[in-house]
Amino acid sequence: MPFAGIDIGSTMTKAIIVDHEERILASVIGPTGAEHRHLALKVIDEALQKASLAMEGLDFIVATGYGRISVPFADKQITEITCHARGIRALLPTVRIIIDIGGQDSKGIKLDNEGKVANFVMNDKCAAGTGRFLEVIAETLGLKLDRLGKISLTAEAYVQISNTCTVFAEHEVTSRLAEGASIPEIVAGLHEAIAGRVINMVRHLGMEKDVVVTGGGAMNIGLVRAIENKVGFPVLIPPEPLLTGALGAALAGHDFVRRGVTPDHGRRRERVTFFQ
């Protein structure tokens, strides 16, 4: 009995297939960038191929993420809050707070003792506090996004980036450079700014151990260190931080089947059109 979860985020599409013992049969992280988002069907096909399965062979498909509503082949849609919680419950059952830093938004989720969502917060429509913020600034600095974390660790101090607005921060970074600040110091300052913004938001839930960081933000070691500094203790990082939402979606599909829930409507093998 295989189950699939597909997480269509703002910058990436992720798919996972698990079996009835909740072992991962296949996982795929789809192409990055807005222009590729409609390729969700390709991503799930790739995962099916890896697992040597056909779509008809899947017992349940759950879609999550911002693009979930428009997945024509999904049996049900669930928000990423619930899916992240479900994924983390399976991976790291001691976690009480999830901090997810994605491409276009960040969120905090509080779990109760059973690992269910007790409360959550999401950032507002502003790009600050998200991966997008770093992406824009990396471009300004002429750096690759995935190098930012390591670069910042070489800094002995950080310069304060007081503007949390992406547009203004870009100007601020340029003028800090002109004042003679080093690139590592600036990148460390950016991580401080994002961590500060995210942690302030998540504090509304009440900080409680264990804390896990997921999403693209978890892959930036500099940002993770800045978050740890703010919360005052080490945080956990799942082995595949981008995949917790998709994993949770697949597991939620299994939960549905166990509870005898039937799919909302028929599957259609069509492209995802929502973002075009």
Binding site: Y66, V117, F120, D124
Partner: peptide
């Protein structure tokens, strides 16, 4: 408990996608 953010009248402070995402998660909770 959930806090939705916008303004009482200024539409520039409102994001429908964000609200729907939050409301969906709230209902699931």
């Amino acid at each position: 408990m959930m806090q939705l953010v916008s303004d009482m009248v200024d539409l520039r402070d409102y994001s429908e996608a964000q609200w729907k995402a939050q409301i969906g998660a709230f209902i699931e909770t």
